[in-house]
Amino acid sequence: MIERTTNQKAWWLVLPVLVLVAFNAIIPLMTVVNYSVQETFGDNVFFWEGVTWYTEVLHSPRFHEALGRQLMFTFQILAIEIPLGVIVALAMPRKGILVSVCLVLMALPLLIPWNVVGAMWNIFALPDIGLLGRTINAMGIDYNFTQQPGAAWATVVLMDVWHWTSLVVLLAYAGLRSIPDAFYQAAHIDGASGWQIFRYIQLPKMKRVLTIAVLLRFMDSFMIYTEPFVLTGGGPGNATTFLSIDLVKIALGQFDLGPAAAMSLIYFMIILLLSWIFYTVMMRDEDQK
């Protein structure tokens, strides 16, 4: 019989991680919670406010508008990027040297730092010197994203599509590549049309990667900050002020730490809730097995 020593020494091994997580996540998050229920005028003097800030944020038209813009933006880019990504992935070659070429080209936008993307598009879209801006104006369309809210919105959407469709393409392509040839061969023997092959073989097999793509694009686009901040700064007016831009304005521009903290937590809860809904809905069929 082997004598087994039982003690709790192993907990010490967990300690570094615990400390790291505490300083990384728990302490900052709790600080935010702290701010969200108190009022401060500096000098580390705090007054208890309860849920005042939460009520204020939830009833503020400014928050509603930013949230509305945010939802609309996310909906639009998902509606464009997911189908577009799938179409591009379907059109990509399956073998040969072109595969590597395509993959590198696709990965390029993903490797560019976000503020550089914003700066690039800012210059690219300027009506007087930018290639895009000048071209559009030369075609007789009055376009100036620094002054027209519609133009600014369209530019931000276009920039995001340019920046992130590649991610969907790469994921969808990986999904497509994992389908064994036998599926296509069987479909040919069964006399399936191209659309049927897509509908009954490719789409179901891509479902898991597309779920990941939708979740990633939802979370990232819902938190978008850097690129529109560099491109439009949230303007003109508030036309492209999304939740994160508004949050920074409140927290660092106006220094209203209480409302900003409350808004952060509400923002966080919305992302968590929507992600959960997306995941549950898209994975619903899997559970029926």
């Binding site: 064994p180 036998a182 040919h188 023997i189 069964d190 006399g191 009954y200 073989i201 179901p204 097999k205």
Partner: peptide, 29 residues
């Protein structure tokens, strides 16, 4: 083409149309 030759082939890995029922699978061809 394969569909014109009226042959059937069973592959190494089972090929089924995941989103369809067994009945729909059989009815598909």
């Amino acid at each position: 083409a394969p569909e014109q030759r009226n042959i059937a082939q069973v592959f190494q890995f089972p090929v089924v149309y995941d989103t369809m029922t067994v009945y729909q699978n059989l009815a598909f061809p």
